[in-house]
Design a protein around this nucleic acid. Structure first.
Lengths: 194, 194
DNA sequence: TGCCCTCATTAAACTGGTTTAATGAGAAAC
DNA sequence: GTTTCTCATTAAACCAGTTTAATGAGGGCA
């Protein structure tokens, strides 16, 4: 599968839009990637992993989730088409991943060793900038979520979820939505009744 | 107050350690800063503000906090010596700040217009890198906090706070600690009894 | 010494959410 | 058509943390 194939169309566009890389740098980066398909239920990262890949989603749906010792799960975010996916914080801190990443729908990705991408940071400023922009996006997303947990009750968080992730609710079971909101399916059902 | 003065010693060290800037670039950056003192209770940023400064703490203690419509406050983080302080997410998104930053102790800072620093990103790679590293730090901090809220109960969060911010508890009233943990002072008092 | 003032503790009623368990409802398997 | 999944709903008991309010305990200050 070569960087000229249709699978590379989206990532090309996204990267051009984000950091406007020179053509040769862009090709350098793209040839590090290969395609991968995850079946529904399959894992991209498992909690405890120490080696990491960067994924770019061509299609499908991933969830990032924490697990407690007694088996409870907490979805922390969802990733869909044209977004990057990685256990980036674990890579940066060189600690084992604290959460898992799992496909909820069959998903088509481009993947690449994360360390190879980070090595490019020193090679050209556009990749350093990419690293900055991705970190900024992640930061803003997490901070927004922190604000929701501190300021909003469960019902408000549910309404926010509907507007922030339009259409996503239909692709998820009530269990996954509830887990993202930090409540039980029972409570979500009660909220929905209103 | 010139960049040669003692007030610039710490920021010099921190920047050298983070991004190893060339001497002339470092001086370029430092001459953008001037000193500022905040009395206890004084604000560095107010919720709703649209223009932002980057602060570097020489001494003192700041809190970042959200406020609800009915006046309740939620501390989201604390900043002490040798750390940078800014409403960075608001700056990045060009939205009004959603939280306030206030001095809990009398604080000595170096401050500078945030936009001037961000303009330097294109001038030299070391500043682009600085932007990346700061965003990464913020991201990791927020993600850690998200994990705590999802996985841990109030008592565990309290114990985490004590180990993650050693000595800080003694500089804060019980109200501020409780607000950071997402509980009431009453509940914190009960936890402490155990 | 006595008077504030602010902060910490304790108790009691209350509430938003959980837990457990039973019931319903749709879709796939055969 | 019946069985058997999985997922959503509903009810009832329960619990972690809130709210309100009263009490205590220290510090600054005239």
């Amino acid at each position: 599968m070569k960087p000229a194939s249709p699978a590379f169309l989206s990532i090309r566009q996204v990267l051009k839009c984000l950091v406007a890389p020179p053509d040769d740098e862009l090709e350098n980066l793209l040839k590090l990637f290969k395609t991968r398909t995850l079946e529904a239920g399959e894992y991209f990262v498992r909690s405890g992993d120490r080696s990491f890949e960067l994924g770019f989603m061509n299609s499908g749906l991933l969830r990032f989730f924490y697990q407690t010792d007694d088996g409870k799960e907490f979805n922390k975010s969802f990733i869909t088409e044209n977004q990057f996916a990685a256990a980036y914080s674990a890579f940066l801190t060189r600690l084992p991943a604290r959460f898992s990443i799992q496909a909820i729908e069959k998903s088509h990705l481009l993947i690449c060793d994360l360390a190879l991408v980070v090595n490019l940071f020193d090679q050209h400023r556009c990749w350093e900038k990419l690293g900055r922009l991705l970190a900024e996006q992640l930061y803003i997303k997490k901070e927004t979520r922190e604000a929701e947990f501190l300021l909003d009750d469960a019902e408000t968080r549910y309404l926010n979820f509907q507007t922030n992730y339009p259409g996503l609710e239909d692709r998820l079971t009530q269990y996954h939505v509830a887990s993202y909101l930090g409540i039980t399916p029972v409570m979500l059902s009660r909220i929905r009744r209103r």
